[in-house]
């Protein structure tokens, strides 16, 4: 029973991080119709900044200060996103999709090198916060308490995002722009401003994913690409452009991965791809996507 409970918590932990990454990816696509391949390295950027802040600048500080510094990576990724959208992406909106893919793929590579240039090739750790949180007992096993914080952040982020999109003025304008950009513009909506805000929010989510994950695992080169691939599995299952889809997709991937680890550890990733392939065959637009 306790083993099952631990698997369930692990699935939720994984789903929380995946939701933050895939939710941001989906939000950006939903509003701007851009598949942002650089998204994975915005997640990595968030992880590096938080690891640098917690494990480097403020190493040895009290846990409360480290907790305050935890979202530093999210804000840094948001600022980076706010700078990238108008300068590198906007000129390509009227070009064919392959140009946008090329630009965002190039950006993925540039960001990877930027991380290497700033922080070097070695992993960056912020495990102090993880350790300070200690462990709790589930049955006879010890389980890291910090993981519950990650799950909590994922849940709070999902609720806040839902409220932001469906209960605020900005959310109404955002949804209108995503459904008919031309009409929104003709009604007085500054579409360029909405785009930069949506992109910034999407990058914030990716950065937050990296920031909360880094105390439990080091920031390493290549983590962005791995996360991007998993985020794509989530959005393929949930439907690209749908936040509900990102949430359900992340939960499915979290559970399937954990089940894969428990019963078929050798083919853990293959099980995920199989799940995505089945959804693609049955519902090509994903569970919540529109054909």
């Amino acid at each position: 029973m306790e083993v099952l409970l631990i698997h369930l918590v692990n699935a939720l932990l994984y789903a929380s991080v995946l939701f933050l990454i895939a939710g941001g990816l989906s939000l950006i696509y939903g509003v701007m119709r851009i598949v942002n391949l650089a998204h994975g390295n915005l997640y990595a950027f968030g992880a590096y900044v938080t690891a640098w802040a917690i494990g480097g600048v403020a190493a040895g500080a009290p846990s409360s200060l480290l907790l305050v510094l935890l979202p530093a990576g999210a804000f840094a990724a948001a600022v980076l996103g706010a700078a990238l959208e108008p300068t590198l992406l906007r000129p390509f909106y009227k070009r064919a999709e392959e140009y946008q893919l090329l630009v965002t793929f190039g950006l993925l590579m540039i960001l990877e090198d930027l991380l290497r240039f700033i922080w070097g090739p070695y992993p960056l750790s912020a495990s102090e916060l993880f350790e300070n949180f200690g462990s709790l007992t589930i049955g006879d096993s010890l389980y890291p308490t910090y993981n519950f914080l990650v799950i909590g952040v994922g849940i709070v982020a999902a609720v806040f995002l839902w409220a932001f999109i469906y209960k605020t003025r900005f959310g109404v304008v955002l949804r209108a722009t995503s459904q008919n950009m031309r009409m929104a513009s003709a009604l007085g909506v500054n579409v360029n401003r909405v785009y930069v805000q949506a992109f910034t929010l999407g990058c914030f989510m990716a950065g937050l994913g990296g920031a909360i994950v880094v105390p439990g695992q080091s920031a390493v080169l290549g983590m962005g690409v791995d996360a991007l691939v998993l985020a794509f599995i989530v959005v393929v299952i949930g439907g690209l452009g749908s936040l509900e889809g990102a949430l359900v997709g992340a939960l499915i991937v979290g559970v399937v991965r954990e089940a894969g680890i428990a019963w078929f550890p050798e083919i853990e990733l293959a099980v995920l791809y199989l799940a995505a392939a089945i959804v693609l065959l049955v519902r090509p637009a994903g569970l919540f996507g529109r054909p």
């Binding site: 109404v172 949804r175 209108a176 459904q179 009409m183 003709a186 009604l187």
Partner: peptide
Amino acid sequence: AGIFPDLTVEENFQIT
């Protein structure tokens, strides 16, 4: 008409 399909009529009015 250019109505935003997923928005309610009131939300369509709210924008303007």
